[in-house]
Write a protein that binds this DNA or RNA. Sequence first.
DNA 1: TTGCTATTTGGTAGTATAGCCAAATAGGCA
DNA 2: TGCCTATTTGGCTATACTACCAAATAGCAA
Lengths: 115, 115
Amino acid sequence: MKWGGDMDEKLKERFARLEIRASILKAIAHPTRLFIIDELSNGERCVCELTEMIGVDTSTVSKHLSKLKGAGIVVDRKEGLKVFYNLATPCVLNFFDCVDKVIKTTAEERLKLIS
Amino acid sequence: MKWGGDMDEKLKERFARLEIRASILKAIAHPTRLFIIDELSNGERCVCELTEMIGVDTSTVSKHLSKLKGAGIVVDRKEGLKVFYNLATPCVLNFFDCVDKVIKTTAEERLKLIS
DNA sequence: TTGCTATTTGGTAGTATAGCCAAATAGGCA
DNA sequence: TGCCTATTTGGCTATACTACCAAATAGCAA
């Protein structure tokens, strides 16, 4: 990321914070990862269970989980051969409410435009 | 996006919803767009003001705004030559709290690991 | 040890994204 | 009309992401 070179210190700090925040949100902003988050809200799941549910390659699911873990959204726990994942900070579930509100508001506005 | 072909209807619907939700979150998950959202929380701003603050090309800012608008996160209002943008659904500001909590929790855990 | 299962990691191809510049569009004013 | 400013759009390049397959790693059990 590159912003104007003559940026003052305060703004640079502000953007540094936003960059970290964006990285967390980016880790969440993918349908498969949202599925995982939604599923983990009902309790821990192992990689094999999630893979079975989603229906993509295990390696793909593993990489999604790795991204979520790197962002601090999930934590893992090994038990024998299996690795179980859990939500680290369940507040991410609150995102759904606001996102759905955005979708609803937008849809209502668009309906108004054509009626 | 492509998931397992033998997916049942219920799961397909679930993923369809998640895909829409992900598109909203993706629109938010960029430092410059977070800056814009943060800035608009203090009231409407025109493209020129935001460009001046961020220090990138006007066309870049315009495209970021276009993405936010497409996702239903901001709305615009023309006044003479200028176009003013506003938050459409201020609840997106709530995201910051949880994101910061994720960052804080992760940082604390990592500190514990090295101490 | 070997074999089996669960998971992660490396490599690669296709796709998407973000930035800049240049050009097009739109509104205000002489 | 022509000129100036504000914004958007198109084209381009560089970078990042995702999905698959193949190979590597890890743990359990014979």
